[in-house]
Computed example of a mutant assay.
Amino acid sequence: MSQPWVPFDDRGLSYGDGVFETILLCQGRPMLWALHVKRLLEGCRRLAIDPPDESALAATWQAPPGGEWEVLKIIVTRGSGGRGYAVPEVATPRLMSRRVPFQPDPSAWRQGVGVRICSLRLARQPCLAGIKHLNRLENVLARQEWQTPAYREGLLADSHDMVVEATSMNLFWQQEGRLMTPALDQCGVAGTLRAGLIEAQHVVPAQLALDELAAVNRLWLANSVQGVWPISALWSSEGACLRRWEPPQDDPLQAVAHPLLGYPATP
Results as ranks from 00 to 15, higher is better:
P4E: 12
W5D: 15
W5F: 09
W5A: 14
V6L: 11
P7L: 10
F8R: 08
D9Y: 05
R11Y: 10
D17E: 13
D17L: 01
C26F: 01
Q27G: 12
L32Q: 07
H36M: 05
E42M: 05
E42Q: 13
C44E: 14
R46S: 13
A48F: 05
A58S: 14
G67P: 09
L72Y: 05
I74Y: 03
G79N: 06
G79I: 01
G82F: 02
G84S: 11
A86I: 04
P88N: 15
V90T: 14
A91G: 05
A91F: 04
L95A: 10
R99F: 11
P101W: 02
Q111F: 03
V113A: 06
G114M: 05
I117M: 08
P126M: 07
K132I: 09
H133Y: 03
L134Q: 10
R136E: 14
R136Y: 14
L137M: 11
L141N: 05
R143C: 13
E145G: 06
A150L: 08
R152K: 06
S159I: 10
T167I: 10
S168H: 06
N170H: 07
W173T: 03
Q174D: 04
R178I: 03
L179F: 02
L184Q: 07
G188S: 13
G196W: 00
E199D: 15
A209R: 07
L210W: 02
D211V: 02
E212W: 00
G227F: 03
G227C: 08
V228C: 09
W229V: 01
L234F: 08
W235S: 02
P247I: 06
D250K: 11
D250A: 15
D251A: 01
P252E: 15
A257H: 01
P259S: 11
L260N: 07
L261I: 09
G262D: 08
G262L: 02
